[in-house]
């Protein structure tokens, strides 16, 4: 087994385990910590794919920014423990799990029926993942979507302030 294969199993199994942890923990803070670990595992998977810049951005944006916001909101709401224990096993959950299992089965059948046949990374993969090549594509070919996304972020900023304000007069 080469190093890439070993790391794939380490991060892949880690990502799945922490994902299951996220949706099964009753305490929202425990779920958030599991999700932070999950984002680190995904960054590791990106590294096995030789996408260095995205691995760093994954940690900076998701684990650094978004999860801090989530933990902050959990702290602001300050839910008591008695309410945290009110997750119950219901018919709806069984139906949800069965539907998800069917979805998983369908995706598995699709991947199995039409294998992509790609067995190794493209020879140019390592040079694709650098900040240089991504920046070059982002500021030439994808300049318009890049500017549009900045407008979207501005709109989200204004929207979040309006929504979270105490009183709208």
């Amino acid at each position: 087994m080469s190093l890439q294969v070993a790391l794939f199993f380490l991060f892949g199994i880690g990502a799945i385990a922490t994902a299951i942890g996220t949706i099964t923990r009753r305490n929202p803070v425990a779920a958030a910590v599991n999700l932070i670990a999950h984002f680190f595992m995904l960054a590791g998977l990106y590294l096995t794919l030789e996408a260095q810049l995205l691995a760093v951005l994954q940690i900076l944006v998701y684990a650094g920014a978004i999860m801090v916001l989530v933990v902050f909101v959990i702290m602001l709401l300050n839910l008591g423990d008695d309410r945290a224990l009110r997750e119950q096993f219901t018919v709806r959950k069984v139906v949800g799990v069965v539907l998800a299992a069917m979805f998983m089965l369908q995706v598995g059948v699709l991947i199995n029926a039409q294998p992509t046949g790609a067995t190794s990374l493209a020879p140019t993969a390592a040079s694709l993942g650098t900040a240089e090549s991504i920046g070059q594509a982002l500021f030439t070919q994808y300049l318009f979507p890049f500017e549009a996304i900045s407008l979207l972020l501005l709109a989200a900023l204004v929207g979040a302030i309006i929504l979270a304000k105490r009183k709208v007069e």
């Binding site: 920014a65 916001l69 972020l153 989200a156 929207g159 979040a160 929504l163």
Partner: peptide, 17 residues
């Protein structure tokens, strides 16, 4: 990632409201 960041801000503001 950018859309997810915007979604995080809006979604959590909705939860707070």
């Amino acid at each position: 990632m950018a859309v997810a960041a915007g979604e995080a801000a809006i979604g959590l503001a909705i939860v707070l409201a």
